[in-house]
């Protein structure tokens, strides 16, 4: 699945990284605790989260996450956006809640961290 598919499935607005939407995403990860992002955010995954702080963007960079999609209509501040932008990390935002976002992506074939490669 590509980032542009995720944008379409979630009706998401692209916040930054609009030129990177042809990137391939292999897994989905939903996390609302920083420690979970640190532990389960895997390389090649799209992170679905309600967290909008700068640490999320930094952690995503470290874990080589492909993109972050903020759920429940949450939006990061400008500083966080420019940080992601300079790192080449695409950010999107959907008004859908976490459950609906994960559900729709899964239904369209995106797998989770534990199932990937099975």
């Amino acid at each position: 699945m590509k980032l542009q598919d995720i944008r379409d499935i979630l009706g998401a607005e692209v916040i930054t990284g609009g030129n990177l939407l042809s990137r391939e995403v292999s897994m989905g990860c939903g996390a609302d605790l920083m420690s979970d992002v640190l532990a389960y955010g895997k390389s090649g995954s799209v992170l679905l989260t309600g967290l909008t702080n700068q640490q999320v963007v930094r952690t995503a960079e470290m874990a080589e996450i492909v993109a972050i999609c903020f759920v429940r209509g949450k939006r990061p501040d400008e500083k966080t956006v420019s940080m992601a932008s300079s790192q080449g990390l695409p950010l999107m935002g959907t008004t859908l809640p976490m459950f609906e976002s994960c559900g729709r992506l899964y239904k369209n074939g995106l797998r989770g961290v534990s199932e990937y490669g099975e």
Partner: peptide, 9 residues
Amino acid sequence: AGENDPEVF
């Protein structure tokens, strides 16, 4: 747990 990465955090 964990070790800081100064470039990241």
